[in-house]
Amino acid sequence: MEYLTELWPVISLTLKLASVTTVLLLLIGSPIAWFLARCKSGWKEPLAALIAMPLVLPPTALGFYLLLALGPDGPGGWLANLWGGRSLAFSFTGLVIGSMVYSLPFVVQPIRNAFEAIREPTLEAARTLGATPTDIFFRLALPLAQRGILTGAILAFAHTIGEFGVILMIGGDIPGETRVASVALYDFVEALEWGKAHILAAGMIAFSFLVVLTALMLSKTQRTS
């Protein structure tokens, strides 16, 4: 039990980071996915490739550039200046930004697939009924893609909980501010505190299993319905 009181700040920070990241990612990921699914612009595939980059980049490489961008000399520093700070690196806000970049493809891809599965004539029917483009996005596209959106949300949440390299590069290990579960686990192992390490590691394994199972079951019902 005393373990749990010590671990609770870490776990709650992790859950908070994952929740905030997921909500924000859904807000920006859905319009991006809509653009990628419907737009015929030549910029679409380069944009899709850019968004998918975190899938293949070493998190440390991504983290390095994010660190520069969030630091005092980057746009993050400029942003932080607006409310009197010096830098976004090593802050919760910085972690959220980094996690969003890192998990963006996990949100965009399933939602884009769901949008692409909507029949073009169905959308045309809405246009002939007087629906504006925004109207179509909110009243048709989002409800029709709800399973894809749910899948994207689950993946973003889980992926954010599991990230390590990027966080270490841009957030460090500040208790209560940037010390999330994956980083804490690393510390416990370094300090030979195996009991705490077990609790965190086993908890994350159980959690991941549940998440992957849910996602699989969702995609199965999607196919059969």
Binding site: R119, T122, A125, T128, L144
Partner: peptide
């Protein structure tokens, strides 16, 4: 008003 070959009702 446009009626399509396959009606195109909104499935949801």
């Amino acid at each position: 008003g446009f009626a399509f070959q396959q009606a195109e009702l909104f499935p949801h």
